[in-house]
Design a protein around this nucleic acid. Structure first.
Lengths: 342, 342
DNA sequence: TTGTACGCGTTATCAA
DNA sequence: TTGATAACGCGTACAA
């Protein structure tokens, strides 16, 4: 027996009413008396009816799904605890609402645009999360053009019709610089993240601002790329160049962790000769020698709030004009052993 | 102007044929002469028609999407390069076929079952990837029950109707043990992955087998859990207990990397006093001190083959009875600096 | 090749 | 206000 799944018509027949009445009753809409409503609900329960998602999607022109397009190099994604945590947060909200998450991983800018267009053309999702915002991010205009709702993680540097869910990286970096300055460091350098990313830029900016606020001369900034290889190269330049810094603030943990090896090879002791700080608080950060002082953000909470916000936008609860940004608690400093007085 | 999207009826009208003819023509099916077919194709192109995914999904009862339910702790996912790589491989295949990937991250066994059931009930996906297979994995029976096609990554330890895509972990571990034995190590220990995972068990088994093959006494095995904390604890037990090993084979990189700190704290030099090997070749592995000897598998290729296989199962191209397993090249040894003669 | 029923829930229209 | 009827979304499949 194939046990055909009961449809709304079956329920209607069973309850002795029309299809339309069933739809109203099941969606809690006015238009049916409470007693027939109950009869319909009973019939539905008895038959074990559950809505056919595809039929609903067709008739309402909704996908009941949200999209996430990840354009980072997968190597880079693997070293970052952000994505799994963020997605776990998103998932928590979506599970409650019977929504799904459609994930795309793309490896080129062309594929990225194509990815969003395909998601929109096929009506695969009702909205998307815009992560890893870049300078003059072309996706803002793209999504406006194709009419796909979105929320951005942090605020873009271009006019945007989309609400932003903000988790400010800067206080974390500032706290690190203050911590180092408080220990007596004056020659503090920074290894940044890859240029186009707004969060990388924000961290660099926060570094510069915090240095100024601490009354210190601007520190050297070496470009990094969030990878271990990039962190190693940048660290090597800093430690072998003139005016060796006594502390380095890294834009992420992986780069900071790679510095431990460079220091060991060059005979530079951490933290005695060199203090280092990371960003992310990866699983490993607390289990290296010396344990890494870093900064932790609530990526999971970010995912939850972003998901709720995006669903609200889709449901029209948030006016696109009065873009209401939501701010989360900023990243917090985790003091460990990789920092000490110079 | 809302520019209603052209439907198949519009195309039919434009080409002066029936809806059915259009459907045949666009799907390259027989039933229309090649000239009317061309006329229809021209009309479709002129109107800028593209199929309405939702309507197609409803009438064919297909989702045109595949599912991936990740039941690992998100903390654990973040430290593992497997998922992003695997997903990138999957994505490559799906993009070509206009399929989507629906991702679910769950944090409890109950949520896991509910996740699969929801995916099936809502017809969200046409099939799923079964990753992180466990002992007597209940998902095999669950998926059979709900009739959701699947492919498993590696072969389960219970009867399965699903094809397996195999990437054997064991040769990688065996190569590590042979390498260490070749260097003269005899007291080799193993820090395993968490019990229920079949890949963790396979690695432990491979370790035991390789030790026997090398003519060595069975090495000590300490349970790990793939996390840095677990790796640290296990390493500490091994290095402070009796009969300290001269080499440790870890079931993953994160645990091996955490050993570097333990060794440093105990004054154990790597590799002089202790050789260590990892598994995964994470980004950081080559950038610690000393660089980690480990094993690398082609997770991206795994994703590609798994996706192709799953689509073939869904399309009925693979007979469920004659489960045809596909084997990929096993993981390869990456020799670096964390191993040397005892 | 054509015409049309079908998949299934939503919603506008209309009668009671 | 309650509820029935029918149109709608759009492509597929089968009888004619």
């Amino acid at each position: 027996m194939t046990a055909r799944r009961p449809t709304i018509s079956d329920v209607a027949r069973h309850a002795g009413v029309s299809k339309g009445a069933v739809s109203f009753a099941l969606n809690g809409r006015a238009g049916v008396s409470s007693e027939t409503r109950q009869r319909i609900l009973d019939a539905a329960a008895e038959l074990g009816w559950s809505p056919n998602h595809r039929a609903r999607a067709l008739s309402t022109s909704r996908a009941f799904a949200l999209g996430l397009v990840v354009a980072r190099d997968p190597e880079l994604v693997g070293a970052d605890p952000f994505f799994p945590m963020f997605i776990a947060g998103v998932e928590k909200v979506l599970a409650e609402r019977d929504q799904a998450l459609v994930l795309q991983v793309v490896t080129s800018p062309a594929a990225e645009e194509a990815g969003y267009r395909r998601l929109a053309r096929d009506g695969r999702v009702d909205g998307v999360f815009l992560v890893d915002l870049r300078e003059a991010d072309p996706r803002i205009a793209l999504l406006e053009e194709i009419g796909l709702p979105a929320v951005t993680l942090n605020r873009p540097d271009v006019p945007t019709p989309f609400p932003a869910v903000i988790l400010d990286d800067r206080p974390g970096i500032a706290a690190e610089v203050r911590h180092l300055a408080g220990l007596g460091h004056t020659a503090i350098a920074h290894v940044s993240g890859p240029e186009p990313f707004l969060h990388a830029i924000a961290r660099s900016q926060a570094f510069a601002d915090a240095m100024a606020e601490a009354g210190l001369p601007p520190g050297r900034v070496e470009p990094g790329d969030f990878t271990a290889a990039g962190g190693r190269a940048a660290t090597h330049r800093l430690l072998t160049g003139p005016d060796r810094p006594t502390a380095i603030v890294y834009a992420n943990d992986v780069m900071a962790l790679s510095a431990i090896a460079v220091a060991a090879e060059l005979g530079v002791r951490i933290p005695d000769d060199l203090s280092i700080t990371g960003f992310d608080d990866t699983d490993l950060a607390g289990y290296v020698h010396p344990a890494l002082t870093t900064v932790r953000a609530d990526a999971r909470g970010w995912g939850e709030v972003a998901a709720r916000t995006l669903l609200a936008v889709i449901d029209g609860e948030i006016d696109e004009q009065q873009v209401a940004d939501t701010a989360l608690a900023p990243a917090e400093l985790i003091l460990r052993r990789s920092t000490s007085a110079p």
